[in-house]
Each structure stands twice: as structure tokens, then as C-alpha cells.
Design a protein around this nucleic acid. Structure first.
Length: 127
RNA sequence: GGAGGCCCCCGGGCGUUCGCUCCUCCGUCGUGACGGAGGGGAGGAAAGUCCGAGCUCCGACGGGCAGCAGGCUCGCUAACGGCGAGGCGCGAUGACGCGACGGAAAGUGCAACAGAGAGCAGACCGCUCGUCCCUCCGGGCGAGCAAGGGUGAAAGGGUGCGGUAAGAGCGCACCGCCCGGCCGGCAACGGUCCGGGGCACGGCAAACCCCCUGCGGAGCAAGACCAAAUAGGGGAGCGGAUCGAGGGUCGCCCGUCCCGAGGUCCCGGACCCGCGAGGGCCGGGCGCCGUUCCCGGGUAGGUCGCUGGAGGGUACCGGCAACGGUAUCCGGAGAGGAAUGAACGUCCCCUCGCGAGAGGGACAGAACUCGGCUUACGGGUGCCUCCGCCC
RNA sequence: GCCCCCAUCGUCUAGCCAGGCCUAGGACACUGCCCUUUCAAGGCAGCGACACGGGUUCGAAUCCCGUUGGGGGUA
């Protein structure tokens, strides 16, 4: 059976759509294009895979475990429903939060992250 | 009504949509995914990592020294620095709370400054007597004293009476203290009916230390297993007894078991000499096969460890209680860049607003698992204490 | 995750183990004055700290407990 296409994936977010190894993160940091928002950075690395893959990193300086987990969950939620997701198929993405991300609320994060995702998708089509 | 104390409980509920993770069942490809159905899915502190255990590895263990920890008594417990009850001390008007609470009549040490004197002490101002000088005030010398003043955190019992030149446990009464007996209590300790002692023995052991008790180390990134590559590789062992250099583990030392180069004897030999008894020589063999162990090589990855356990609820029984016993019921997370989220409706509480409505609802996220402690934090029931007012 | 260590002026540090001499010392920096035509250098003076909360002691930066905040090791 061929790998499931993005259209079949829909709004779902299984393991195949997540970065899971140290090396994959490092490759994004070193070779990926960086896009900045107020409190976080998006590292985007184009690839040949069938789906876009996402990883999230938060420094301990951001806050306690609850704060850091919340940011990761929000990030996944935005990515999962993002309209730019299909256009980014094959890309490896890492969202890294900086210490002042603790003051973010969901609506603000959603607006900024959507902006970066759309930008990444646009630059991929027209390099 | 206001301030507080103690114990216990809860940690938002219901519904819809889109997702995540694990388990079971079914189906398809195929042995791991995908699809479908059903079910489970953060806490009272999951936290800090401060104690105590289980579990795993370091080969097993004993003794001494060192080190560390604990330290009123009796219980509870797998264990504890935890909990319960009791004793003593301190704090609070009180309910109640807090306590590193063994030893200073073993030794060593410490006590700045002030003060005459700080450890088996001391006489600065004083008090008294004698004597001398002096008109008086007062002063010198000798002797006795420590009541009063003063210094200090601390100055060798307190109050009163007697006593005296003035004084002093010098004597007496009461209080306190020490020793012994008696009584109550398992004990810590208490009582003070009894006897003895005029009182010596100050403080600090979160100073060294002494006494008693306990403790091997590391930690699930412990540890175990698996396919593949360097690699169809290399090395050692595969009879017994005895002696035994030495080696190996928990900070050090010693010892037992353990491992063990090698020696001796026994043993073996298809080789050499001899007719033979036997002697010599060689050997614990080489090659091949089998088997055990080591190196490669425990690194990245995968699987296991991984959740059912000193488990929880209820009832009865024993116990003041902590807790224990019996019966019965329940099944309560197991991820791995790491699952509980997002959006909305409604109910509950609080704030703002005449109102429609708006905003807010704490501390905080499992990572091998338990028992505690500590810290953070929202709310509630009950009982109790003190104060004010009313009847 | 686990295991350790540390905390003193704005910065770097001494004192801590054996408590009192600490009203906490030094260097650089900062402020003012002197010197100089001016600046620098130099001299004098000043400002300025024991992370926080309890406890032990007559007395705590020092000893003990807790909290907070930093740092390191470990695959």
C-alpha cells in the first residue's frame, strides 16, 4: 500500500507527521530556513516525504512544565488545522519558543504561526 | 457578629465537534501498518528530591577502624528522621501549638566588651572593729565581712526571723535542690507519707568529644535480551589430589569462601632404549569435530524491564489511637522530542454594570513503583476557644 | 530523569572549616575635592554587600533546618 496522502490525512496528526529523532531536529536547525515571529522561530526544511512533519522545542527558561506543554499542544493544534499544511508536504518544521513566549495566548499564537506557515509555503513554491 | 484553633472532605459537572495515546475485538494488505467498533487515559500535592523501602547490577560474607545518620518513653510499621499515645520543657487569655528532648559530678576547649572578679572566683564603691592623724568634714594602717550598690548574657540558692562588732546556711521555718527508700506507672516520669544532706554540682555538646542504635555501593540513563556490519576472525579451557606466589569487590585493614601462574605426586603416551621387570624422554599436547568461556562489543537502534501493588472501597471484630485481622466488592494512565488539547453551549461561584451583557475561577503535568516529610494553592462541612452584643 | 556544588558592594574576591577583634577588608568601577592650561596618571574623602525565612547561642556572614535562584556532571 502506498503512503497515505495528505488529503487522506485530513485534520489528523499521527506519528508519521511528527519529528521524533534528535538528528531530524538538528538537520532542521542547521539547514532549515528561519522565519521569526515575536516569541518563537520556525525552522523549515523542504524534503521529499509525503506529509509535512512538525517538531516543537521549548526552553526551560520559558516556564514550568505546564506552560511548556501548553505551548506545544497549542502549536500542534494550529498546525493540525492549518490551511498551509498541504502545501508544505514533505517539509520538516521545528517551532522553537523563546523565554518571553510564556505571555502568549492561544489566539495570538494561532495568528502568528499561521502567518509563518503561509510564508514558508509561499517561499517553497517560489524559491 | 468578630478574631482564631483542630480534624476531615472536594479539586468543577453535563453535552456537541475536530484531534492524540494505550488495550480488546473484527476486516484488508500482510506481520506492521491501515480502516471500523467498544473501553481506559494526570495530582493532592504528580513538585522539591529531604528521609525510608521494594526492585536490578556490582561474586557471597564476617570482624575491627574511620565516616555518616539518628537520639525522652512505650507502641505501630516492610522500613523510616514517619505516625499514634504518654512524659517533661517552652509559648498563647484560651482552643491549642512548638521542641536536634542522651551525657557538662570522663577529658579538651570557648565566653568579645564591661567589670575588682568569668571558674574549685573575687573586693571597686561599701559595712564593722581596733589604732593613728585631724578643730570639724574626713583620711591612713591592721583585722574581719560580702548584706547593699555597681558591671555583665551569666557573679557559687530565694524569702523571713534569729544571730552578730558587722556579717555569712552560722542557726531555724517555708519554698527550691541533691541522695536514698516507699508508692503509682511496662517505661519516660510523677507523688512527697519517710529518712539523710546546709547546698556541693554555673553555661555552651546545631564546639571537639563520650555513650547507645543503625548504615556496603550504585541507581530503571539500574539491568536483561535481539537482528545486522567490521567478521566464515582471534584466544583460552574441557582427569584427580596436594602445596601455593598472587589476584579479586563495597573508604581503609584483617579473615573465610572464590579465582588462580606454577610446583610435586598421581596419571597418560601410538615416541626412544631394553627379551623383560623397568628406565629415559615427552606431554598435560597438534589438526578436525563437539562443547563452555573470553576478546571483538555493548555504542546508535529495537524489544523487555513497565505496571496487580506493603492496592483501594465497605462492613464487622481487637485496640484510647496509629494500626491490625476477617469477609466481600472494585480493577484505577503507561508515553518515549514524550499522549489529557482546542472550540462552543449550559449549569455553579466571584467581580463590574440599572440592564442586555462582559471578565474571571488557584497551585500546578505522571516517566520504575510504593510509605512519609516539606513546600505551593482554591474552596467547603463539623467540632472547639476567646472577645463583644442581645434574650 | 538521576547525582553533586555554589550564593558576600555595580564586577572580581577575602573573611566561614575552629562564632565576638566585622560598624564586613581589598582591587576595579562610580561621585566629589586637590594637583594640571586641560585630560590621563596620582593623592584625599565618599557611596556601596553577607540571597530569603526560621532556629541554636549572651552573641550568627560564620553552626543547623527550610525556601529561592544559579552552576556542573552523567547516555
Amino acid at each position: 500500500m502506498p503512503e497515505p496522502a495528505v488529503a487522506i490525512l485530513g485534520d489528523r496528526f499521527p506519528r508519521a507527521a511528527r519529528l521524533r529523532r534528535r538528528g531530524e531536529f538538528d538537520r532542521c536547525y542547521r539547514q532549515g530556513r528561519r522565519l521569526h515571529a515575536g516569541a518563537f522561530t520556525l525552522h523549515a526544511l523542504p524534503g521529499a516525504g509525503p506529509v509535512a512533519r512538525l517538531g516543537t522545542t521549548v526552553t526551560r527558561r520559558v516556564g514550568g512544565a505546564v506552560t511548556r506543554q501548553r505551548l506545544k499542544r497549542w502549536t500542534r493544534e494550529v498546525f493540525r488545522r492549518s490551511p498551509s499544511r498541504a502545501a508544505l508536504a514533505g517539509c520538516d518544521l521545528v517551532v522553537h519558543f523563546r523565554p518571553d513566549a510564556a505571555r502568549l495566548v492561544f489566539a495570538e499564537l494561532q495568528r502568528e504561526l499561521e502567518r509563518l506557515l503561509a510564508e514558508a509555503a509561499r517561499r517553497r513554491r517560489t524559491p
